Amino acid sequence: MSIQHFRVALIPFFAAFCLPVFAHPETLVKVKDAEDQLGARVGYIELDLNSGKILESFRPEERFPMMSTFKVLLCGAVLSRVDAGQEQLGRRIHYSQNDLVEYSPVTEKHLTDGMTVRELCSAAITMSDNTAANLLLTTIGGPKELTAFLHNMGDHVTRLDRWEPELNEAIPNDERDTTMPAAMATTLRKLLTGELLTLASRQQLIDWMEADKVAGPLLRSALPAGWFIADKSGAGERGSRGIIAALGPDGKPSRIVVIYTTGSQATMDERNRQIAEIGASLIKHW
């Protein structure tokens, strides 16, 4: 067993022997301040990774656009098919120029040779490549099948209805392509620590998230040296922004954090800054 596999296998073990965790309302004060600064709703939840206990939450059962955070769930569904012998990570998928959609920095470079399922998941999570996500959605049967996968996990809230990039439209009061912070946090925890996926697939999923290259201005910008984070960000229309993450000190994750916002007129930089400040408060009061 590799060191990384050992780390993920012992996530519940280490967490069980940690000192009790206590909620700190100071972080919620910052979440509410972010709402004021952005002029928009902000949803927040913080779960203990081992027990699933909610440590703090704000608007945990209000719907927010998922945006690209759905790509972690998508690759979880792909990995479940791999575990069941219905898919192979090494299978190569070929596609054409007509398949390319807006923001496809990886797939646009491989029109000639195609990409493997493993490479597509890596591109979808680490670079948020939209064509990679659409190609992977095709392998599982489309958005409705991802929703069905989530329902089978016990998540009857999260739903995907459309493809990239239309799913980022974020129309107010439109339930399409949305989740709730509580539902997303619980589902992410199941994917990373539950028995739904094999140990190898859980490790692969967290490795992809740990290698995320496009979430630097968010929670990662607030992390002290030595902290662990595996995350996936999302951005959408109407001032929408979000991030889902597993993080913790001492090089291992111990909490799940989900943050979503929508309806702001603020710039992307300002949305990023507010999420980073929430992260800084979380870490300060850990």
Rank of each mutant, 00 (worst) to 15 (best):
H24I: 08
P25W: 08
P25I: 13
E26A: 02
T27I: 09
L28E: 02
V29R: 09
V29C: 14
V29Y: 08
K30C: 14
V31Q: 02
D33R: 03
D33Y: 02
D33A: 06
A34F: 10
E35T: 03
E35Y: 06
D36Q: 00
D36V: 11
Q37W: 06
Q37D: 07
G39N: 10
G43L: 04
G43E: 03
I45G: 05
E46Y: 09
L47E: 11
L49R: 12
L49C: 15
S51H: 03
S51G: 11
G52E: 02
I54Y: 08
L55K: 04
L55E: 01
L55W: 01
L55C: 14
E56G: 09
E56H: 02
S57G: 12
F58L: 13
F58Y: 08
F58E: 13
F58V: 11
F58G: 14
R59T: 04
P60M: 10
P60N: 11
P60T: 07
E61I: 14
E61M: 10
E62S: 10
R63M: 02
R63W: 01
F64S: 12
F64H: 12
M66D: 05
M67S: 09
M67G: 10
S68C: 04
V72W: 09
V72L: 10
V72E: 00
C75Y: 09
C75N: 09
G76A: 05
G76T: 06
A77G: 07
V78C: 12
V78H: 09
V78D: 13
S80I: 13
S80T: 06
R81L: 08
D83I: 01
D83E: 06
A84E: 15
A84F: 12
G85K: 06
Q86V: 10
Q88W: 13
L89N: 00
L89H: 05
G90L: 06
R91L: 09
R91D: 01
R91Y: 11
R92Y: 13
R92M: 01
R92I: 00
I93K: 13
H94W: 13
H94K: 13
Y95R: 07
Y95E: 01
S96A: 07
S96V: 04
Q97L: 09
Q97N: 08
V101E: 08
V101L: 06
V101Q: 08
E102P: 10
E102K: 14
Y103D: 01
S104K: 03
P105L: 09
P105Q: 12
P105S: 04
P105W: 13
V106N: 10
T107H: 00
T107C: 01
K109C: 13
L111S: 02
D113K: 07
G114W: 00
G114V: 11
M115A: 01
T116P: 02
V117L: 04
R118P: 15
E119T: 11
E119K: 14
L120D: 12
L120E: 04
C121S: 06
C121F: 12
S122E: 14
S122L: 14
A123M: 00
I125Q: 10
M127H: 07
D129A: 06
N130P: 01
N134T: 07
N134A: 07
L135V: 11
L135G: 13
T139W: 00
T139L: 03
I140M: 15
I140P: 11
G141W: 12
P143Y: 02
P143Q: 12
K144Q: 10
L146N: 08
L146C: 00
F149Q: 14
F149P: 08
F149D: 14
F149L: 14
L150P: 03
L150C: 10
H151C: 08
G154L: 04
G154I: 06
D155C: 10
H156G: 04
H156Q: 05
H156C: 06
H156A: 02
V157R: 07
V157H: 00
V157E: 00
T158P: 04
T158L: 01
R159H: 14
L160A: 13
L160I: 06
D161Y: 02
D161E: 06
R162K: 07
W163T: 13
P165N: 01
E166P: 03
L167G: 06
L167I: 14
N168H: 11
E169Q: 01
E169V: 07
E169N: 04
E169P: 01
E169A: 07
A170W: 10
I171F: 04
I171C: 00
N173R: 11
E175Y: 00
R176W: 00
R176L: 00
D177F: 05
T178Y: 10
M180L: 02
M180F: 00
P181Y: 14
A182G: 11
A182P: 10
A183G: 07
A183D: 06
A183T: 11
A183K: 07
M184F: 05
M184D: 08
M184H: 03
M184A: 09
A185P: 04
T186L: 05
T187D: 00
T187Y: 08
T187V: 02
T187E: 01
L188R: 05
L188W: 04
K190S: 13
K190H: 15
L191I: 14
L191Y: 07
T193G: 06
T193K: 10
G194S: 10
E195R: 09
L196M: 05
L197R: 08
L197T: 09
L199W: 07
Q203K: 13
Q203Y: 04
L205V: 06
I206M: 15
I206A: 14
I206D: 00
D207R: 04
W208T: 05
W208K: 04
M209G: 10
M209P: 12
D212S: 14
D212G: 13
K213A: 05
K213N: 02
K213C: 10
V214C: 03
V214A: 05
G216N: 06
G216C: 02
G216I: 06
P217G: 10
L219V: 13
R220T: 09
R220H: 07
S221L: 03
S221M: 12
A222V: 13
L223P: 04
A225G: 02
A225D: 12
W227Y: 00
I229T: 01
I229W: 06
A230F: 11
K232Q: 15
K232A: 15
S233L: 03
G234F: 06
A235F: 11
G236R: 06
G236F: 13
E237F: 15
E237K: 07
R238A: 09
G239M: 14
G239T: 09
S240F: 04
R241Y: 11
G242S: 07
G242P: 07
A246K: 02
L247R: 02
L247C: 05
G248C: 07
G248L: 04
G248W: 02
P249D: 08
D250I: 02
G251E: 00
G251R: 08
K252Q: 03
P253E: 12
P253T: 12
P253F: 15
S254G: 07
R255I: 00
R255L: 04
V257E: 02
V257T: 03
V258T: 09
V258R: 05
I259A: 09
Y260T: 00
Y260L: 04
Y260V: 02
Y260R: 00
T261H: 10
T261S: 02
G263R: 05
S264L: 05
S264A: 08
S264N: 01
S264Q: 06
D269F: 05
D269M: 12
D269Y: 03
D269N: 08
E270I: 14
E270M: 13
R271M: 14
R273E: 14
Q274K: 01
Q274E: 01
A276K: 13
A276G: 08
E277L: 13
I278C: 15
S281E: 06
S281K: 15
L282T: 08
I283N: 10
K284G: 05
H285V: 03
W286K: 12
W286G: 10
